[in-house]
Amino acid sequence: MTQLALVIDLNVCVGCHACVTSCKEWNTSGSAGFMTDENPYGKDPTGTFFNRVQTYEVGEFPSTETLHFPKSCLHCEDPPCVPVCPTGASYKRKEDGIVLVDYDKCIGCRYCSWACPYGVREIDETQKVMKKCTLCVDRIYDESLPESERKPACVLACPTNARLFGDVHDSESEVSVTIREEGGYQLMPEWGTKPANHYLPRRKTRMHIHEDELQRADNPLKKEQRGPSAPVSEPTLDDSTSW
């Protein structure tokens, strides 16, 4: 079984919102129609986004850390939003595990957005249907694109490479190895939704310098208590011998 997902490295994300804008750009131009953007330059702008980047401050001044946190649909393996849908518009694809909405079947009752603890489903207030991250399903299988570009728009846009894309069920894939080796975790594990998207924690690289690394305990010069002899004035063996 395949389960496509994103792995987001919080250690690398700089909160530039490039993933947000490229997501909006790709998906507003797609076959499913535009994504609402009301008063984009006016008062009270509002609109539909699949992806948002939020910023948090962890700790208390002065020992604080800024955390940029991109959040989109986590494509849960046990998605609570799917069984509650009364029309079957919300579904999880068997072949690749992507959770999608059939915009032609959705009645816009918002029940699925109530059933998602992560708040990643946003109703399109113009088209009156529920919308959410599709993992760029119209892009990742598009054979007219070069293979290197068959990735979600957000992954391609990320300037710091904080977003990885792949199959988390293939234990040797880049994403699985990263999750395994870099401590990838899921959001709100308490609800048993088994999100497919994983996050990599902030990691600190610290140097640990010991006293004996600064001053060698077994320094032979210190042991013999004798420095090299001073230079001599008469010719040395090097001067007189042709090696």
Binding site: T46, G47, Q54, T55, Y56, E57, L67, E122
Partner: peptide, 13 residues
């Protein structure tokens, strides 16, 4: 942990 920004300044759903 304190939120400093929700990623947008207008409202949303």
């Amino acid at each position: 942990i304190q939120q400093k920004s929700m990623g947008f300044m207008g409202g949303s759903v």
